[in-house]
Amino acid sequence: MMDRAVFPEDVEFHPAEEPHHPEGSSTMLGFWIYLMSDCLIFAVLFAVHAVFGASYAAGPAPKDIFELELVAINTAVLLLSSITFGFAMLRMHMGDKKGTLIWLGITGVFGVIFLAVEIYEFTHLISIGATPQRSAFLSSFFTLVGTHGLHVTFGTIWLVTMMVQVWKFGLIEANQRRLSCLSMFWHFLDVIWIGVFTFVYLLGVLQ
């Protein structure tokens, strides 16, 4: 480090004028920072669930109400949607508009299946009386899993929007950038889901 202290006299330590940034060059970093802030939202919800996860208020425990088969199906669906989104991105980099749209469509179908299974799970729980009002455990469960589900909902809406954009305007640079953001969002949701199925469902049932 010390040898850097000696510089020629004419060295400029900053550019004379503001460097020109091409349009959208900072979007990926900005979107990543958004994802990190989203991560903090989930961290708080996981922390709440860690505290309330065993507060059943003499109500149902995870063992009584969780159906791990459903969770396994949803995990598989989300994982498959991650790989199909990856294939869409590979097609996009190849400039294959039709292939991109097909893989995005398949990803969207997986997203809808995930949401359908989750809505079925929630309505089933509510119908047997395991409502968010029943116990602190169920309140934090519905908040955490529901927040993830909301993210998948908006991700799916965004995905359909992007399919229309690509269909109408093609794989222009702006669309490539937007698809890359959505791809990060989608894979990020899968990462959060790893935390959900591990800490909420699997460890919940083990308790």
């Binding site: 091409p22 060059s25 979007t27 990856g86 991105m89 590979l90 640079e173």
Partner: peptide
């Protein structure tokens, strides 16, 4: 330009 990280199959 976009700095998009590329994945491979």
């Amino acid at each position: 330009h976009t700095g998009i990280p590329h994945g491979t199959f």
